[in-house]
Amino acid sequence: MEPVEAQEGPSLLSDAERQRFEQLVVPHLDSAHNLARWLLRSESDAQDVAQEALLRALRFFPGFHGGDPRAWLLKIVRNASYTWLESHRRAELSEEFDEERHGEPAASPEAQAIARAERERLRDALEQLPTRFREVLVLRELEGCSYKEIADITAVPLGTVMSSLARARRRLQRILIGPAREETPHEL
């Protein structure tokens, strides 16, 4: 018998399970970090939360019986991220579904358009989106998830994924167009 270590988590897994975890779950570490980074809007917090989520996943791994390991891991990352937001930046979550609240215009969109790289514009725009909208966009556009996977990861009915994406994309477009022309998007 191997000695049982006092530490919880990884040590409770057998070598075979640990190996299986390595094969099924660890390859999705990039996805885990990516989702955490966009939910938290911070590199350093993302690293902490992704690590915490991976270790949680390792702890729960004996309960994982087949299915899509990426979706399974991303669900855990998402929970860890919301838990973190809940305790650190609660205000962000409560603004979520206020459709009328437009993204705060960053200073001088004209100067911005000239001075800033496209990447920064998009990053800023994405970060201005409410968390739930940012989440579906990141899962769809950066992670390449299907609607079914998004429904699974974010725990919403499959039928609402398409409308959430539609709203998220329209919001993002509005932010990118900028507040000056926001009133008349149909003329563009």
């Binding site: 990039d30 970090h33 980074r37 690590q51 950066l142």
Partner: peptide
Amino acid sequence: ADLYAPAPPSLRRNIRERL
């Protein structure tokens, strides 16, 4: 726009060490 944020090496190393 290259917005994807892959795991930094330090995170990999930490996970790796735990495994």
